[in-house]
């Protein structure tokens, strides 16, 4: 077995390991779908961050702000059509959610552009300042959200046709989670396609491997980076929408909470690695749901435990990116 494929087995291995512990097949299926849905959402959010880090060596601690922002924009757009969303058919709901999501992604992407310009550009190559500045930027953004939409928790109801669950055999699978898995998978495939089959993807991958070499071949890595940053922020916005609907309520601090989760995923995956990020996100999602069912008290720390275990095995994460 190739060493590179080893981490990929972890996901099914964890799922299979949980089966005898959970006991019943239907609850196991429910938990697994929930875990995968959560993992997919986390992956959508974390993927942008890990690319940004790999490409430019910038770790954006403010990434969480885009998650909150995406969720709030979606909430604001969905509010006027709440009535029709409640009764619309499945297809009509999806048709209405598409512009909602696009709006959230457009806003977070645009803010991302500004964020890169104002906050990050002056501190390239200075890790210490980057960490401090982006952290400060996140706090300012969070407070701005509170000033605009208020500090209280806002319920974000699922559209009527996405509520409830499907019965497959005896396993109850929530419709929304299934949808989230679908969207996450679609994003993942689109990203794989972009990264592996297009010229831009080739340049991004090359940039992650060796930035200076790409620059010396005459490509503007800065422009590429801005593009990745905007895309990453928009993905965080999408993730925020998905996460908000998953949790069914949103707060300004949700981004900061998810941030911790994302960092754990990125550390597990190896800084800068997309595949590692995917595996890490799924592991975190599954682990959270299994432990939540088996031992709720332990669930609060399951991610830390997972991270410790992975780092004991591979101190640099699952797929450490070369040269970093």
């Amino acid at each position: 077995m190739n060493r590179a494929h080893l981490p990929l087995i972890l996901v099914p291995a964890l799922a299979l390991l949980a089966l005898p512990l959970v006991g019943s097949l239907p609850s196991w299926a429910t938990l697994t779908i929930a875990g995968l849905a959560m993992g997919m959402i986390i992956f959508v959010i974390a993927s942008g961050l890990t690319l940004i880090f790999g490409l430019m060596d910038v770790l954006n601690f403010g990434h969480g702000a885009f998650i909150s922002l995406g969720a709030y924009v979606a909430m604001a757009v969905m509010l006027p059509m709440a009535g029709s969303l409640e009764t619309a058919s499945f297809a009509a709901t999806l048709a209405m959610l598409v512009p909602v999501t696009l709006a959230a992604m457009a806003v977070t992407g645009a803010i991302g552009l500004a964020f890169e310009r104002v906050i990050i550009r002056p501190v390239y190559g200075q890790h210490l300042k980057q960490i401090l500045i982006t952290m400060g930027g996140m706090i300012v953004a969070e407070e701005l959200i509170k000033a605009i939409w208020g500090p209280q928790q806002i319920p974000l109801n699922l559209p009527g046709s996405l509520k409830g669950s499907l019965l497959v055999g005896e396993a109850a699978i929530e419709k929304y989670r299934l949808l989230a898995v679908g969207i996450g998978l679609a994003v993942f495939l689109a990203m794989l396609w972009t990264l592996n089959r297009t010229k831009i993807g080739l340049l991004i991958r090359a940039g992650v491997q060796d930035r200076e070499m790409v620059e010396s071949l005459g490509y503007r890595i800065r422009t590429l980076f801005v593009g990745v940053f905007v895309a990453g922020s928009a993905l965080a916005g999408l993730g925020g929408v998905l996460w908000g609907l998953y949790q069914q309520n949103i707060t300004a601090a949700m981004g900061a909470q998810v941030n911790v989760l994302i960092f754990i995923v990125i550390i597990i995956g190896g800084l800068g690695s997309t595949a590692g990020c995917f595996v890490g996100a799924l592991l975190v999602g599954l682990m959270a749901n299994y432990t939540g069912f088996l031992a709720p008290k332990v669930a609060l720390f399951s991610n830390i435990l997972l991270m410790t275990a992975i780092l004991l095995w591979r101190p640099q994460g699952l797929y450490p990116v070369a040269n970093r």
Binding site: L59, I131, F263, I264, I267, M307
Partner: peptide, 9 residues
């Protein structure tokens, strides 16, 4: 950066 993230978690 690694340390910053781990301590946050």
């Amino acid at each position: 950066i690694f340390y910053a993230m781990i301590t946050l978690a």
